[in-house]
Amino acid sequence: MTYLSELFASRELFYNLTMRDVKGKYRRTVLGQLWSLINPLATMLVYTLVFSFIFRARPSEGDPSGLDIYPLWLMTGLLPWMFFTRVVNGGMSSVIGNGGLIKKVYFPRMHLPFSVAGSVGYTWAIEMGVLTVALTVFGGMPLIWVPVALVFMVMLALFALGLAMLLAIGNVYFRDLQHFTTIALQMWMYLTPIIYPIHLVEDQAERHGQWILDVYKLNPMERFVSVFRELLYDNRWPDLSDSLVCVAWTVVMFTLGFLVFKRSEKRLAELL
């Protein structure tokens, strides 16, 4: 049986591990699933207060949607980012966190990071659903763009998974990699135009040199965030080159993570 067919044959395990996380997380808390929405809402309030009210970040008006509401603009970029970091962090620690299981039972280990993406993706889907409703209520037309957005959501999930699988293996060899990743993700977030609009960077690039913008565009998350904004906030087709770059990053990162994980998988039980 080839690796892929075994993975596919055990998809029920993927589903069960995903549901273990989904159910386990909010079980027996008073608000249950609602908790998952409180965290993004609180973040939205704080960022809006600090970056829109105090720092006066002014994203351009949605074209053609005509939306001009900072919190909604923020969330169209922030929710994908939060999903990305949760998959990277969770997927990365999923191997070490389930060390006991890996040492005791045989099963395709790749289901561990996959199921993290599954359960985090479940929460993300709910958040994006709520956001879509809010965008519609405030006058946007995101609904017809939802199918395209779903394609990009799957792509972002695969991209994040690829990185998570790579780091999960790295984490087995270097147990402090998690700390470095946390710091790196923090810096990465501020280097991605999520809470401030890219035109602020463009202004600086005009003054100090085009290379600044070129470097900025090397960041795959800049492309993903901009695609989600174009689809859901602006309500138009995303820039073609952005889309192609997203596809390329997804293919490269997922393939790399998959191959590295697959190669190390058999040795995990003795490394842990």
């Binding site: 273990r20 386990g24 027996r28």
Partner: peptide, 20 residues
Amino acid sequence: SGFHPELSGRENVYLNGSIL
């Protein structure tokens, strides 16, 4: 191994079964 403390015995039987 693989039991989730917050889940019921029933749910864990299904989860553990699929791990095995």
